[in-house]
Every structure is written in C-alpha cells, then in structure tokens.
Amino acid sequence: MDPKLLSLLVCPVTKGPLDYVRGQNELISRSARLAYPVRDGIPILLEGEARAVTEDEIAQLPARAPLV
C-alpha cells in the first residue's frame, strides 16, 4: 500500500490512524479494534465489512513510528 495514501486514511469509526498488515491485506484500527479489508488495492472502510480484532493481534503489530 502506498505510504502516502496510508497517511491520509483514517478509521471511519474513531477517526484514528490505520496500520496496514500486508500478509492479511487489511487495515487495522487499534482504537476501534477493527480490521478493514483491502480488495484489489482498494481499502473497504465500511464498519459492516470490518472484522473484530483480538488483543493478541493488536499486540503483534509493530510499534508506530513517532510523529514528527
């Protein structure tokens, strides 16, 4: 996923940042605990299309780079 695009996208529920998980092709909202699918390169940012994310999945995400 294009890093520039990722920096512009936010969770539609919390308006917080999203993390891209390449292996699962999903955008994860840590604050909403939801994973949004990316299909054919298009993020599907609809709450009804998202799946719930477990605490273990959140813990496995890499730390975010600090904002400058």
Rank of each mutant, 00 (worst) to 15 (best):
T14D: 03
R39L: 09
A63E: 15
G23D: 09
P12S: 15
T14S: 10
L9S: 05
P66G: 05
R30N: 01
P3V: 04
Y20C: 06
T14K: 00
K4S: 12
V53F: 08
I28N: 12
L8G: 08
S31T: 01
V10E: 05
D40W: 00
Q24D: 15
N25M: 01
A59R: 15
V53H: 06
A35Q: 07
V38K: 10
P66C: 02
L8R: 12
R64D: 11
T54K: 05
A32P: 12
I44L: 10
C11K: 14
P12H: 15
R39N: 03
L34Q: 01
N25G: 06
V38W: 02
E49D: 10
Y36I: 10
G23I: 00
D2W: 08
K4C: 03
C11G: 14
L67V: 09
A65G: 09
M1F: 07
A65M: 07
P3E: 01
E47W: 03
A52C: 03
D19Y: 05
D40F: 00
S29Q: 14
N25H: 02
D56G: 11
P17M: 03
P17K: 12
D2P: 12
L5Y: 02
V10I: 13
P43W: 00
A35D: 11
L5M: 04
A35H: 12
C11V: 13
K15F: 12
N25W: 01
E55P: 11
L67R: 05
P43E: 00
P17N: 08
Q60C: 07
P43H: 00
L8F: 14
K4H: 10
V13C: 05
D56Y: 12
E47G: 08
S7D: 15
